[in-house]
């Protein structure tokens, strides 16, 4: 859909690496619905920024909470939807 690829920057944030976190996640589903889904796991520290101002996403791995039948063992979570466990 975008005419040109958005500027994307990958990086590593050592301050976030190894921290346990929850993510109130979700996204678009079907023609006009949204879905809410919750994850919990460990932040790898890897991140990706899209566009300007940067829209930052962290990789949450080693998931110990995820929706039933979620087919992957990691998820990209938007920074503003991450809740660090115990902080």
């Amino acid at each position: 859909m975008p005419k040109e690829p958005l500027p994307t920057t990958k990086g590593f944030d050592p301050e976030m690496a190894g921290k346990r976190a929850e993510c109130d996640g979700g996204g678009h589903f079907g023609e006009k619905y949204i879905r809410r889904e919750e994850f919990a796991g460990t932040l790898s520290g890897e991140y990706v920024d899209h566009g300007d101002p940067p829209w930052r996403w962290y990789l949450l791995k080693d998931l110990y909470q995820k929706p039933d039948h979620y087919a992957f063992d990691s998820v990209w979570c938007e920074k503003g939807n991450i809740y660090l466990v115990g902080e």
Binding site: G25, G26, G27, F39, L59, F72, V75, W76, E78, N81
Partner: peptide, 8 residues
């Protein structure tokens, strides 16, 4: 709908 999480 700004997604909050996306699978890899």
């Amino acid at each position: 709908v700004l997604p909050a999480s996306v699978p890899p």
